[in-house]
Amino acid sequence: MIEEKHDGLWLGQLRRGVADRCVLALLAHREWYGYDLAKALAQARLIAGEGTIYPLLARLRREKLVTTVWRESGEGPPRRYYALTPEGRAELAQFRLQWRQFTSSVESLLYEEGSEPDARFH
């Protein structure tokens, strides 16, 4: 569970803003079972509760950025796995560029000459 009180509201909002793009990044490598996606994102502290992954995945499906496939499971009934669509892959590529530009802009403002010199090492 994310401790927003300690981390600050801005960080919680930032996490919420990028969580769906991080899902696309995970799906870029392989298909994922929803439960495992939820665990991975919660461990990375990108979602406030594992259950929030399902409305997020539903939204990505409506936007046609992800799709689902049924796979047999050795531990019970077939499971629905999530996979990236071509549109999702294109969206991820664009997000990677935007994220690099965004972090570069923020870093240049934070660490430009005259700002707190030790901030980078805290």
């Binding site: 569970m1 509760g49 259950g51 929030t52 997020l56």
Partner: peptide, 15 residues
């Protein structure tokens, strides 16, 4: 259930 999360957060994530 705690790890699944507060229903209110899930509600908000659902828009």
């Amino acid at each position: 259930l705690e790890e699944v999360g507060d229903v209110e957060i899930i509600r908000q994530e659902a828009g």
